[in-house]
Design a protein around this nucleic acid. Sequence first.
RNA 1: GGGCGCGUAGCUCAGCGGGAGAGCACUGCCUUCACACGGCAGGGGUCGCUGGUUCAAUCCCAGCCGCGCCCACCA
Length: 886
Amino acid sequence: MLEKTYRPEEVEARQYERWEASGAFSARPEQDLPRYVVMMPPPNVTGNLHIGHALDNTIQDLLIRYHRMRGYDTLWQPGTDHAGIATQMVVERQLAAQGTSRSNLGREQFQEKIWEWKAESGGTIIRQLRRLGASADWPRERFTMDAGLSDAVLKVFVKLYKDGLIYRDKRLVNWDPKLQTAISDLEVQQTEVNGHLWHFKYPIEGEAGRYIVVATTRPETMLGDTGVAVHPDDARYQYLIGKHAVLPLVGRRLPIVADDYADPEAGSGAVKMTPAHDFNDFEVGKRRDLEVINIFDSYARLNDNVPEAYRGLDRYEARERVVADLEAEGLLEKVEDHLHKVPHGDRSNVAIEPWLTDQWYCDAKTLAQPCIEAVEQGKTRIVPKQWENTYFEWMRNIQPWCISRQLWWGHQIPAWYGPDGEIFVEESEEQALAAAEAHYGKATELTRDEDVLDTWFSSGLWPFSTLGWPSEDPTVKRDLALYYPGSVLVTGFDILFFWVARMMMLGVHFMGEVPFRDVAIHGLVRDASGAKMSKSKGNSMDPLEIIDAYGCDAVRYTLLALAVPGRDLKLDPARMEGYRNFCTKLWNAARFCEMNGARLPADYDPAACKQQVNRWIVGKVAEAGRNLDTAMQGYRFDEAASTLYHFTWHLFCDWYIEFAKPLLQEEGEAAEEVRATMGWALKSLLCLLHPLAPFITEELWEKLGYDGEGLLISTQVPDFPESLIDAEAAAEMDWVLRLISEVRTVRAEMNVPPAAKIDLRLREASATTVERLERQKEVIQRLARLSSLDLLADETPQGAVQFVIDEAVGLLPLAEVIDISAEKARLEKEIAKAESEIGKLDKKLSNEQFLAKAPESVVEENKSRRAEEQETRDKLAAALERLEAV
RNA sequence: GGGCGCGUAGCUCAGCGGGAGAGCACUGCCUUCACACGGCAGGGGUCGCUGGUUCAAUCCCAGCCGCGCCCACCA
């Protein structure tokens, strides 16, 4: 016999091990089945599972299990990402704690350290995903720096280079002075800062006493100024165009140029130009042929291109000095407070510096074009659809993607330089040397580019690199044919650009086909009050801890129930408690079934049930199954969760089991049919629930001795054809349910002491209305007896309900426990409510336009509602009169 | 500056042209032989505000007020 409560801690590890050992997680390429493929977003190899991973992977596991149980060959491709900057930072911090640094170790030793660190803590997150119940194809696990995936990176880089889609360029990049690397636009976060706007007077050359005023938020950059721009139509400055200003502190002649970029409305209308340290100024500088003078070193300290007094100063020290010196010279006109956005590195959290360097770029614009079309044509669907706009917006305005990083951890760029700077991009050093020999006519020594690629470059290949591309191996070719493109990519919107867009670009370019059919976007997990979870705020939830506390199924169910597509979810422990209770409820329902000998005969046919309750619950199971299918197709995991929750608790437990109790007391055919149907319903329910709550359902399946090797390993969900839904049984049962509720209410209000349990014995189902009415009468009679009320046998069912209520109310004065004045107040309130309802309906029904234009059915509905309300009102009024008479 | 989204019961959120819903919380009764992580019954909402379209608006449209997010080169 089952225990009284479900104990997840005793079940989860055991069931998981059994699943994994069975091999049932694995794809079955050799079988001729429809395919369902999900590529797991690879977490950082050295990371820990956080709540966002838990959501993302629970959804994927739900989809995978759901499809696996419906006859698909499923591939859930797992793996991890080397996460360049993030991992390098972790190891660097460790080195710092040990009193050393990467520069002390040198490149090779440092890389060894990282590999050691990976070997040590690399498997953590994968193990943690197993705690979540993730049924991924673990033997296929990949790492972005595996040999195979690295081959893919090489091949892609070389091909794109040779196609002219990757190139080297000298331009301003987002330079992170702390991490000492370039970063892409996406890795830059704009942070609002309370700063100042300084207005400086630049003397006009040869016109003593005349100045042009420029404003800046970054005074230190003035040391690199090479011009001043004004708007061509700005009357105030016409006479200055073509003349020069003299840069204070430096003495450089600054051409005053006309350019549309200068906004006459902003500041003084004149703007200083620092082409080496500002993206806009760089563009203006190119147009107006201004000098580009770099004044910073890689740590954002002033270099030798500034007057000696400032050399070596940090940018912020320099700012103070420059302002002080200009003020001393009387050239500071004014200082205003100024709130503005300052770009910061998302990893380092220091202000990034636009800095002139040589970097590798990817021509994202060209790659993006077919991806825009692919989504427009519906080859890939983004769910919810509103995100398509965001995708289009970004893809249409995409900038060149800076793909080189000055790091040591990652895929080193396969580019070699000859002595004269000639670039050789090849898949190996040998090929590069060969190319160099061909180029120079003799063997020539080459130096390899030190930079590595942006992490997202290799993860952009994930949908096909994990399948073995570019290997020519027949197995790989087969897998690519079967498992590319994937069915759906599940992800939060935070990496829509970082990752999804890159996979689209690289997938379409190299495979000639989009990497996935659907992109299912979910929100971010926030705490109960809506704040972002973060360690520093102390509001983060460790998924493993909450799994320990509530059980994995409860955590999964909570996440799914909250997962409205594209919306953030606020995670409240109270919710998890609720779903933990749900698990217990399910467990106990199964326990009841077990205790009462619910069993499923081999020849059981749900469509052949005779009894009404059984026909009804069969239909409700089928309905739940069909609703689940609809929800899953629309990625409405919240609806999937709620439909099964409602069925389990409020239909199966609250009603069906209660109806079954009296029936089970009797021996014979009726009881047998209930046992069989109950067994069938429970078994079906376990099948339906398994993808959401895999552990408890599997455990029950095993404990109840259902067939096969278990839910995950060998069970297919049966079809639930619409024909199983018996509309007549459903309508009757709805009526019975309502009736029982009403009688219960009356009894509660009358304070009728609890008699025996409501005893419903619904006799064999019958098709004819006469018989149906007879049965209902019997139900009413029983209820009435139980309520100590006599009931006229020839009342019609609807009248009977009213009669029961009337009688109950009529008995009120006799029940001493009832407070008469309170009861009067209640009745008066009810009457007022009914009257207001009648008033509204009257108004509606006297509206000619309504009668003329509204559909007939709506009019009829309103009329009958009017009649019902009137009847209710009259009965209530009569009851009130009787009460007053007492 | 541009874009997206949100304001529905005390809380968290579904719904979305024709009688306001769920979970939790709350109140009352019930330790009845699956379950007190339970059962039954109940209270609670001018569906942000103002206009418009419509026979009919929580739902569609416009404006406004609050809140959040994303993107953007404004000194």
